[in-house]
């Protein structure tokens, strides 16, 4: 339990999000363009962080599906900023040893000739230490 509490505090601190402001309207989930790809949806990130269920979120592929489009951040009437929680949980994972989600070796297979390098720079930034 104490481990879970520490993880929750770390996520809250690193995201700067006040999950208690949420009024459970679900507008974040309504607006999320990655909904179909996510196991846990933006409003669940908020609720589950509040309940301290960081491990479940951390184990979910959802953390790699967020498009960082800030739609939930901008449209939330309560100023909760769910995307920052997704990023904070993902960071808590990839900061652990051996947990890089994207490894440089995997890149050549993904390349095509038109691909702008910012795509890989951003992917490495988001998914690796």
């Amino acid at each position: 339990m104490s481990h879970s509490n520490n993880a929750t505090e770390q996520v809250l601190r690193s995201s700067g999000v006040d999950v208690r402001k949420c009024m459970r309207c679900g507008k974040c989930t309504a607006t999320c363009p990655a909904f179909d790809e996510m196991e846990y949806h933006p409003h669940q990130f908020v609720y589950m962080v509040e309940k301290g269920q960081i491990e479940r979120l951390a184990a979910s592929p959802s953390i790699y599906k967020c498009l960082s489009c800030f739609a939930c951040v901008d449209r939330c009437p309560r100023g909760v900023e769910p995307a920052k929680l997704v990023e904070a949980v993902r960071l808590a994972v990839i900061r652990q040893q051996g947990q890089n989600h994207m490894k440089p070796e995997a890149i050549p297979a993904m390349l095509d000739e038109d691909m702008p390098q910012q795509l890989f720079v951003s992917a490495m930034r988001k998914y690796s230490k």
Binding site: P33, K65, L67, S68, M110, L119, A123, Y127
Partner: peptide, 19 residues
């Protein structure tokens, strides 16, 4: 002003395509 899914175009082509 809706996202095209550009960020995940390398690792999740299916999602990027859909968006």
């Amino acid at each position: 002003n809706e996202c095209c899914g550009g960020y995940i175009a390398a690792e999740d082509k299916a999602q990027a395509t859909k968006r």
